[in-house]
Amino acid sequence: MPVTLTEAAAKHVTRYLARRGKGVGVRLGVKTTGCSGLAYKLEYADEAQPEDVVFEQHGVKVLVDPKSLPYIEGTELDFVREGLNEGFKFHNPNERDRCGCGESFRI
């Protein structure tokens, strides 16, 4: 299953890359950390790596390293504003549990 972006997330990424003046999209992966074991890592990517799995939606590329893909396959990346806070939200169908602080998850 692909990793997808909502229209709101794609617009945010497109605006940020335009302000930055460079970049091909966002790199999404996981790292081992936190109470539940895994945490998302998201960064703007200046170039694709040869091993990256690339998904594209709304004109924005999402680059995923092959080791992270089994943990985030099917994830939808959204960008939301809630009051004064704004940020990316991950809707991952593989998540079984999330720690109380919301920083890490378990598959």
Rank of each mutant, 00 (worst) to 15 (best):
residue 63 L to P: 08
residue 69 L to P: 08
residue 71 Y to L: 13
residue 99 C to V: 06
residue 87 G to K: 03
residue 4 T to L: 10
residue 68 S to R: 10
residue 74 G to L: 08
residue 54 V to Q: 11
residue 59 G to A: 12
residue 90 F to Y: 15
residue 83 G to I: 10
residue 13 V to P: 04
residue 36 S to A: 03
residue 95 E to V: 15
residue 2 P to C: 05
residue 38 L to V: 05
residue 27 R to I: 00
residue 27 R to H: 08
residue 24 V to P: 03
residue 72 I to E: 06
residue 24 V to M: 04
residue 8 A to F: 09
residue 83 G to F: 08
residue 37 G to F: 04
residue 56 E to L: 03
residue 37 G to E: 04
residue 24 V to Y: 03
residue 20 R to S: 07
residue 45 A to H: 10
residue 28 L to S: 02
residue 71 Y to K: 14
residue 30 V to H: 11
residue 76 E to Y: 00
residue 60 V to L: 01
residue 4 T to H: 05
residue 99 C to G: 04
residue 94 N to A: 11
residue 103 E to V: 15
residue 46 D to P: 02
residue 84 L to E: 14
residue 69 L to C: 08
residue 11 K to R: 14
residue 102 G to S: 14
residue 6 T to H: 12
residue 25 G to D: 05
residue 40 Y to R: 06
residue 43 E to H: 09
residue 9 A to E: 02
residue 12 H to Q: 01
residue 6 T to I: 07
residue 103 E to Q: 13
residue 93 P to G: 11
residue 65 D to W: 11
residue 73 E to P: 02
residue 106 R to W: 08
residue 24 V to S: 03
residue 66 P to T: 03
residue 97 D to T: 00
residue 52 D to A: 07
residue 95 E to A: 15
residue 15 R to V: 02
residue 42 L to F: 02
residue 50 P to C: 01
residue 42 L to H: 01
residue 67 K to G: 00
residue 39 A to H: 06
residue 49 Q to P: 00
residue 101 C to P: 04
residue 79 F to G: 08
residue 66 P to M: 03
residue 35 C to I: 00
residue 94 N to P: 05
residue 1 M to L: 13
residue 68 S to K: 10
residue 16 Y to K: 13
residue 10 A to N: 09
residue 91 H to S: 05
residue 63 L to G: 07
residue 77 L to A: 04
residue 20 R to V: 01
residue 65 D to M: 10
residue 84 L to G: 14
residue 58 H to R: 10
residue 104 S to K: 07
residue 56 E to P: 06
residue 98 R to P: 01
residue 70 P to V: 05
residue 71 Y to I: 08
residue 5 L to R: 03
residue 81 R to M: 04
residue 21 G to R: 00
residue 40 Y to E: 06
residue 92 N to V: 05
